[in-house]
Amino acid sequence: MQIRLLRGLKQGETGEIVKVNSGGELGRRIRDMGLIPGASVRMEGPAPLNDPVAIRVHSFTLTLRNNEADFIEVAVEDRK
């Protein structure tokens, strides 16, 4: 089990959100979208210019900028 920033997920990799480090409007937006501790996210991949990134959370696709994704920490199962 390792903790990484959401941006650090590889395409197709899945993790569980452990922490959202942002307050204010961005923090609220992130939570409104269901990005809360315990939620499972899968990295769908970056936009053609590598930013923003698309992720899958609950049952929908959400895109957010890299610097926004950096507020979110995810726990990823270690690969054997």
Binding site: E25, M33, P52, F60, T63, L64, E68
Partner: peptide, 8 residues
């Protein structure tokens, strides 16, 4: 403004 855009 925060980007956070849903792709429906």
């Amino acid at each position: 403004m925060p980007f956070l855009l849903e792709l429906p």
